[in-house]
Amino acid sequence: MTALRRRPLRPLRRRRGEQVTQMEFRILGPIEAVRAGQSVRLAGPQQRSVLAALLLARGRMVSVGRLVRLLWAEQPPATARTQLRKRVSELRAVLGADRIRSWRDGYAVRLEAGELDLDRFLDEVRRAAVLGHAGRPAEASAALGAALDWWRGPALADGTDELTDAEASQLEEARLAAIEQRMAVRLDLGHHPQVIGELITLVRRHPFRERLRGQLMLALHHSGRTADGLGVYRDWRAELSAQLAIEPGRELRDLHRALLGGNVSC
């Protein structure tokens, strides 16, 4: 897996009244552990992957068998269990002996509230939903922006290929859903010209996410560029027909008809 440049460590952001934590664990990007603002050295993709797998379980036991598969897939060496015990021992040495508990056939990590960046991301997404339902879209947009700020690159970026294959897609789906929701809120706020450039980039990167494509069509329409919005649909329909012999999804077709008829209400 291609190594990513590590970004400088940043302080943990908190809202007023939140409890200060000494440890931070980061998996929304390169896998990192941070103690009191200082990076904890994690030696190699296997050690990072064991830690990430335990963090994703949030205190539940992860079996030895699953950890072995996340390190070596279906072809573990004869010494796999011994090597796994060594990785766990190394983690205890740098994180503290009480951080990782042993079970009969597995391990679990002790994780306190606010220590994992994934949980902070999800907390902000949930807060945005509450604000949106309360009719406070500007604050909801800010909360979604704060949620997305927790991402430092592709999730689990420097773990084993087996770990990223097993876990990264679900995390990426959560990130993209948050992006789509923030775009929807910004469109509701009338930020149509401001989001066009970002939506063009997102559609190019994620062509099969039709919600983003529909949002681009809406942003163009409300910016006085309805013809360009219709062109987005026309080009996508032609591409799908040529490559897969299918039509765009129902919601995108409905939006296309609304643009043609001048019946767009949002």
Rank of each mutant, 00 (worst) to 15 (best):
L28M: 10
R58Y: 10
R26D: 05
R7T: 02
A36W: 03
R14C: 09
V68H: 00
V64P: 01
V109F: 14
G65M: 04
I27W: 01
I27F: 01
G59M: 05
E74D: 15
A108Y: 04
G106K: 05
S49A: 10
G44A: 10
R58A: 12
Q75I: 01
A43T: 11
V62K: 04
L28F: 12
E32H: 03
L95H: 11
S89M: 01
V34S: 05
P8G: 11
M61G: 04
R5D: 04
L54R: 10
E115C: 04
L71E: 08
L67V: 03
D98A: 15
V64I: 08
E115L: 05
G96L: 12
R41N: 08
E18L: 02
R99C: 11
Q47N: 01
I31C: 08
Y107P: 10
M61R: 10
S89K: 10
L55N: 06
Y107K: 08
F25M: 06
E74P: 00
I31L: 15
E24M: 13
G59Q: 07
L42I: 02
E74M: 07
L28E: 09
V109R: 03
R110Q: 13
E115P: 06
R10L: 11
A53M: 09
V40Y: 07
R16D: 10
L12D: 03
S63E: 09
Q75R: 14
L95V: 05
R92C: 06
Q75N: 11
I27T: 13
V64E: 10
L70P: 09
S49P: 04
V50Q: 05
A36T: 05
Y107D: 03
A43M: 08
L54T: 09
R14P: 04
A93F: 02
V88M: 00
G106V: 04
R26V: 06
V88I: 15
R58N: 10
L12C: 01
V40S: 08
R58S: 10
T21P: 02
L28I: 05
R26K: 08
A80P: 10
R15E: 14
R60W: 14
W72F: 12
Q83H: 04
L56I: 10
R26N: 07
E112T: 04
V64C: 02
R41T: 11
P77V: 03
R10H: 11
R5F: 12
R110A: 13
R14Q: 15
Q46W: 00
L55A: 03
F25H: 06
R92I: 05
G59P: 07
L91H: 00
E32K: 02
V64N: 08
T21C: 06
G29D: 09
S63G: 09
T79H: 13
L56N: 07
